[in-house]
């Protein structure tokens, strides 16, 4: 299987009034086609910066980002992005919000077809009947669902999510995790999910990348062996010994990354 997303030795620093602030340090991440990479790391270590680099919104100082065997130099239409805030446009209905990327990516697609596509996705995430509502009329979880629909409406190869469930309550979050698996089953995409929730990273990820504290390196990579033979992953799986073991490993790695662990990180 080929790596659809490849981040090779990426180093990046922000220029600040107090001199350069190194954020990413020789970072390496590879995600095979169709897989889901979860990225965890201490707050402020450079995770959002990483998403902006993958999306081509910024160029790394050194190193390369490759998508689909092509070097990323600027934003591309085959990428979808979801943010921590749903950032829905208040003057558009939910349906029109979801359609927005199609207006850029497929300007010649007939209106009917766009609507059909958006309606299909909204139904998939349980938002049928809310198409004509304004974002302000929806709950936070519903808005985040709509935002997810918007990020994949144009059938991107690559979906980049920056803590999309971070601001939600635990129940809504678990609900959306399942929605995410349902979406994956019907929409093929390769995904990078930034998160600060270790259970989320194990439940959704095929691999979990633990980044070190700033400047971020790839400190640890966990291959997730989710206790589930076939079909969509079930939430109960999180409470098995296998998952407990994986979570313990991740927790330990995060503590090392935060510099709170007695032993030194191994790299």
């Amino acid at each position: 299987m080929t790596n659809l997303i490849e981040i090779k030795g990426v180093t990046h620093a922000y220029q600040t009034p107090n001199g350069p602030l190194p954020v990413l340090d020789n970072l390496n991440i590879a995600v095979p086609e169709g897989e889901f990479a979860a990225v965890v790391g201490p707050s402020g270590c450079g995770k959002s910066t990483l998403t902006r680099l993958i999306a081509g919104l910024m160029k790394p100082d050194t190193g390369e980002v490759w998508l689909h065997g092509e070097r990323v130099k600027s934003p591309r239409k085959t990428v979808g992005m979801a943010f921590q805030n749903p950032v829905l446009l208040e003057w558009r209905s939910i349906l029109d919000n979801v359609i927005l990327p199609l207006e850029i990516v497929a300007p010649s697609m007939p209106r009917k077809q766009r609507e059909a596509r958006a309606e299909e996705l909204l139904a998939l995430v349980g938002l049928q009947g809310f198409e004509s509502k304004r974002p302000s009329e929806l709950s936070g979880g519903m808005r985040q669902r709509a935002s997810l629909c918007r990020s994949i409406v144009h059938k991107p190869d690559v979906l980049i999510m920056d803590e999309p469930f971070g601001a939600l309550d635990a129940f809504t979050r678990e609900d959306l995790w399942q929605t995410m698996h349902a979406l994956r089953a019907s929409e093929p995409f390769t995904a990078v999910l930034i998160t600060h929730d270790l259970r989320e990273s194990v439940y959704l990820g095929d691999q979990v990348f633990v980044l070190s504290g700033r400047p971020a390196r790839t400190q640890y990579v966990l291959d997730v062996h989710y206790p589930q033979a076939e079909g969509l992953r079930k939430l109960e799986g999180l409470y098995t010994p296998e998952c407990a073991q994986m979570l313990a490993t991740l927790r330990e790695q995060i503590q090392i990354a935060q510099g709170r662990h007695p032993e030194q990180a191994v790299h």
């Binding site: 999306a55 919104l57 990428v79 943010f83 805030n85 950032v87 927005l100 850029i104």
Partner: peptide, 17 residues
């Protein structure tokens, strides 16, 4: 907010769009 801009910028939309 930069995120609002990024919704469309990440798709390669022009400044004018």
């Amino acid at each position: 907010e930069p995120e609002y801009r990024d919704i469309l910028r990440s798709l390669g939309a022009s400044r004018f769009t």
